[in-house]
């Protein structure tokens, strides 16, 4: 695996996203819409919103991750670019890593936006900013790597848009639970050991990164 190849692929994906403006003009507004809808659905009681804030944050992240993953798959499928990649000496693990890095950067950007909007609307106060940052970064690695892996599983399927959430959301459930607990601790909303949950998130991130680097090539062959 060559990191240079992975970075070329990540840079290409990010350039495409910046240029197509799907992230800024569609996914980012969708992110804000989710937060506002949660606010309406749970009434304007800020106490309820504060208590459920960490969970709502990660549910919102999973929803926007689904859109971002669909986009990442679509970029490669639109004009058979994935097939062309197969005809280069680039290793599948580099492709996996590159796609995951691009997805990770996009998700982090959206999470930052989501975070500050929620802070403002839900009147949340951060108790442990380090735990927030670390758990968000580690959980996002898990979302990006598992998303890239499951994205390619559904790549060749005609019903990808509906199949991806069915396959991926159960896989992401442990991340959502772990990250919600860690955030809950960092926001002083739950009595949980956030650092222990962060450890679990790290295990998940490592497992999916390693699994993806080994399995991605075979999955591309099969799609």
């Amino acid at each position: 695996m060559e990191f240079r190849d992975a970075w070329s692929i990540a840079r290409k994906d990010l350039r495409i996203e910046l240029r197509s403006r799907v992230l800024t003009n569609q996914i980012a507004p969708f992110t804000l819409l989710i937060v506002v809808l949660f606010g309406f659905a749970l009434d304007a009681d800020t106490q309820t919103l504060r208590d459920t804030g960490p969970g709502l944050f990660w549910v919102a992240v999973l929803l926007i991750a689904l859109l971002a993953i669909q986009r990442a798959v679509q970029i490669e499928d639109a004009d058979a670019a994935r097939e062309r990649t197969l005809l280069t000496p680039v290793s599948p693990s580099s492709v996996f890593l590159g796609k995951s890095i691009a997805l990770f950067i996009q998700l982090v950007a959206l999470e930052v936006l989501l975070f500050f909007v929620m802070l403002a609307l839900f009147n949340l106060s951060v108790g442990n900013p380090l735990l927030i940052c670390l758990s968000a970064l580690v959980a996002t690695i898990g979302v990006a790597t598992s998303g890239t892996l499951y994205g390619v599983i559904t790549a060749g399927v005609g019903v990808r848009e509906t199949l991806l959430p069915i396959l991926l959301l159960p896989v992401l459930a442990p991340i959502a639970i772990g990250a919600t607990r860690a955030f809950g601790d960092a926001f002083d909303r739950v009595d949980a050991d956030g650092w222990a949950w962060l450890g679990l998130l790290a295990v998940f991130a490592v497992v999916y990164t390693v699994l993806g680097m080994f399995a991605y090539g075979q999955l591309v062959e099969d799609t």
Partner: peptide
Amino acid sequence: GLLGHMSGLYEDLTAEENVAFWGSMV
């Protein structure tokens, strides 16, 4: 090198960026 019915290009990259990207892969 396979040139099929599909171009294998990225629509939101310029012609030069596409060639440079595929060049970087090799």
